[in-house]
C-alpha cells in the first residue's frame, strides 16, 4: 500500500509538470490551431535562462529562498516571452495564410535550429549542466516511508495558480475576450476591430512565459539540464493537451496529470521498457474513442 501511494505521489509530481507545459501548448493551439513544436525548446531555454540568471540574482537576493527563486523564474519568463514573440514574428507570422503543414514544418525547423544552436560548443554545449538550488528544499518523510519533496509541492502550487490565472485572463479580461474571439473566427474578429497581430503576439508571449516557468520548475526538480531536455516532455505535454481536449485549459492540466500517473504506474508495476510508448498509446486510444479529448467540445465540420 505504501508503495502504491508513493507511486501515486511520483505520478502526480510528474503529471503536474507535464500539465504546466501542456497549458502553454493548449493556449497557442487554441488560438492559432497549429502545433508549436518549438514549445519544448522554449521550455529548455527557460531552464537555461534560470541557470545563467541564478548567480546574478543571488547578488541582490538571498538564494535559495522563495523570493530569490520567484525572481529568477519571473525574469526568465520575461526573457522567454520576448523570445516567443520574436519567433512568432519572424517565422510564423509570414505563414499565417499558408497550409498547416507548412507551418508545422517551419515549427519543426525552428525547434531543430534552437536545439542544434544550443548544442554548439560556443553556446551551451551538449554536456548536461547542474541546475543551482533556487528554492529552499525540505524533505517530508512520513513514518510509514512515504516521501514528499518541497519542490514537488511548489510545482503543484504553481501549476494550480497559473491555471487559475490563465482562466481569469481568458475569461475575464478584454485581451482574453479578444483571444476567444480570434479562436472562434479570426476573420470575424478582425472585422470587429480586434488587432489580431497584437492578440497573437500576446498569446505567444504568454505561452512562452508558461513554458519558461515549467522549465525552471522542471530543472528545480530534476537539476540536470541539457539542450535536448525539452524534446520528450514537449511531446508528452502535447499528448496531454490533446488528451484533455486541445484548447481547453483545465483539460490540459487533467491530461498532464493522467499521463504522469499512468506512466508512473505502468513503469512501476508492469514494465518500464515501454515507458516512452505509453503516452502515445493513451493518445491513440483516446483519439479513437473520443477524438475531441476528455473535456473538449466536439467540432462540427461545416461544409
Amino acid at each position: 500500500m505504501t508503495e502504491f501511494l508513493q507511486q501515486l505521489i511520483n505520478g502526480l509530481a510528474l503529471g503536474s509538470i507535464l500539465a504546466l507545459i501542456a497549458l502553454g501548448y493548449t493556449m497557442v493551439y487554441g488560438i492559432l490551431r497549429f502545433i508549436n513544436f518549438a514549445h519544448g525548446d522554449i521550455f529548455m531555454l527557460g531552464a537555461f535562462a534560470g541557470f545563467y540568471l541564478a548567480p546574478k540574482v543571488a547578488m541582490f537576493l538571498p538564494m535559495p529562498s522563495i523570493g530569490g527563486g520567484l525572481a529568477v523564474m519571473g525574469i526568465s519568463m520575461a526573457i522567454c516571452a520576448v523570445v516567443g514573440i520574436l519567433i512568432e514574428k519572424l517565422a510564423y507570422r509570414p505563414l499565417r495564410r499558408s497550409p498547416k503543414l507548412t507551418v508545422l514544418i517551419t515549427a519543426i525547423g525552428v525547434s531543430l535550429l534552437i536545439e542544434y544552436t544550443c548544442q554548439n560548443d560556443h553556446v551551451f554545449g551538449a554536456a548536461p549542466k547542474s541546475f543551482p538550488t533556487i528554492f529552499p528544499e525540505y524533505h517530508i518523510t512520513q513514518l510509514s516511508g512515504l516521501s514528499l519533496n518541497s519542490n514537488q509541492i511548489i510545482v503543484f502550487a504553481v501549476t494550480l495558480i497559473l491555471l487559475l490565472a490563465l482562466r481569469f485572463i481568458v475569461l475575464k479580461t478584454k485581451i482574453g475576450m479578444a483571444m476567444r474571439a480570434l479562436s472562434f473566427n479570426p476573420e470575424a474578429a478582425a472585422l470587429m476591430g480586434i488587432n489580431t497581430d497584437i492578440v497573437i503576439s500576446f498569446t505567444f508571449g504568454l505561452g512562452s512565459a508558461l513554458a519558461a516557468a515549467a522549465g525552471i520548475l522542471f530543472a528545480v526538480n530534476y537539476p540536470s539540464i541539457d539542450p535536448l531536455m525539452g524534446v520528450l516532455p514537449g511531446l508528452k505535454a502535447f499528448v496531454a493537451a490533446v488528451l484533455g481536449g486541445i484548447g481547453n485549459l483545465p483539460g490540459a492540466a487533467l491530461g498532464g496529470v493522467i499521463i504522469g500517473v499512468t506512466e508512473t504506474l505502468v513503469a512501476g508495476y508492469i514494465s518500464s521498457t515501454y515507458r516512452d510508448a505509453i503516452a502515445f498509446g493513451i493518445l491513440i486510444i483516446i483519439l479513437l474513442v473520443k477524438p475531441s479529448g476528455l473535456l473538449g467540445k466536439k467540432e462540427i465540420e461545416k461544409v
Partner: peptide
C-alpha cells in the same frame, strides 16, 4: 529499466525500494 534522456526515475526507484 529506463531510457537515456529520461529525467524522472521515481517510478522505477520506488519499485526497487
Amino acid at each position: 529499466n529506463y531510457s537515456s534522456g529520461d529525467k524522472d526515475f521515481s517510478a522505477e526507484l520506488t519499485a526497487i525500494k
